[in-house]
Design a protein around this nucleic acid. Sequence first.
DNA 1: ATATAAACCTACTATGTCAATAGGTAAATA
DNA 2: TATTTACCTATTGACATAGTAGGTTTATAT
Lengths: 132, 132
Amino acid sequence: MISTKGRYALRIMIDLAEAKSDNYIPLKDIAERQEISKKYLEIIVKDLVKSKLVKGSSGKGGGYKLCRKPDEYTVGEILEVTEGPFASVACLSPGAEKCPRAGCCKTLPLWIEFNGMVHNFFFSKKLSDLIK
Amino acid sequence: MISTKGRYALRIMIDLAEAKSDNYIPLKDIAERQEISKKYLEIIVKDLVKSKLVKGSSGKGGGYKLCRKPDEYTVGEILEVTEGPFASVACLSPGAEKCPRAGCCKTLPLWIEFNGMVHNFFFSKKLSDLIK
DNA sequence: ATATAAACCTACTATGTCAATAGGTAAATA
DNA sequence: TATTTACCTATTGACATAGTAGGTTTATAT
C-alpha cells in the first residue's frame, strides 16, 4: 500500500515538472493546484530537499524547483525517499535481523521475486512518463 | 507490505499441502513446525475456514485439512482472504469514495497499472508452486 | 460414561504508523 | 523595512498490526 506521503511527493514532482518557467514555485501554489494541505506538503517536500531531488529558496520570489530534467528521475527514487525502501515483507527490509528460518522458508523465494518485480516496475518508470 | 497474517496464512496452507496423510492436522502441530504462536494462528485459520479454503474438525483426532488440491489454490486468493483485497493505493480499494480528481489525476494510471501487475502476479501463482 | 484433545468464540491490549495540525523562526527579496 | 517564502519542532487523533487471555463447544478414544 503506497501511502499519501509517496503519492503526494509524486504529485509535487509532477507539478514542478510541468512548470513552464524556470522560476521557483511556491509551495502555496502547488498546494492549491493539487488541493492538498500546504502544511502537510511541507513535511513531504522536506524529504525531497534533503535527498536532493528538489531545491528550495527562501524569501520573496522563493519556492521549489527540480534539480534535474524530468526524464532523469525515476518514480522509484521519488517513492523511496518518502516511503522508505521498497520491502514487500518485513524480513526483506534492509536492516532486518536475519530470519533463522530463511534457509527452509518455502515462501521466501516468492517474496524475493515479488520484491524484484515491484522494484523493477517503479525504477523503470520515469517522472517524464507521467506528464501529460 | 504483506502483513504477518497473510504470510502466516500462506505457511499454514503450505504446511497442510505438504501433509502426507489425509488426516486432519491439528493446529498445534502446524504452530510447532512453523514456530508461530498457536493462539495467533487460530485467528488466521478462522478466516481460511470462513472462506472455505480449509475445513476444520473439532474433537480428538480433529484439526484442519485442505478443501481442494494444492494446484487448485492461487496465492492471491489466500492472501486476499487474510489481508483484504489488493489495493496499492486507497483510491483503488473497493468501496472507496470516488476521487473528484480522478479525471485529471496524472498518477492514477500508474496506480492502476501497478495494481494490475500485482494482482496478476499473485493470482497466477498457485499453492502447488510453493511446495518443495 | 468420561477424560481428553481439538476447534471455535469473544474480548482485550500494547505498540506503532499514518495523516495530518499548530505555532513558530530564519532567510531573502521588493 | 515590510512581506513573502522556506524551514523547524512538537503534538495529536484515529486506526491497524500483532498479538494475548480465557473460556465454551464438539467429537473421539478408552
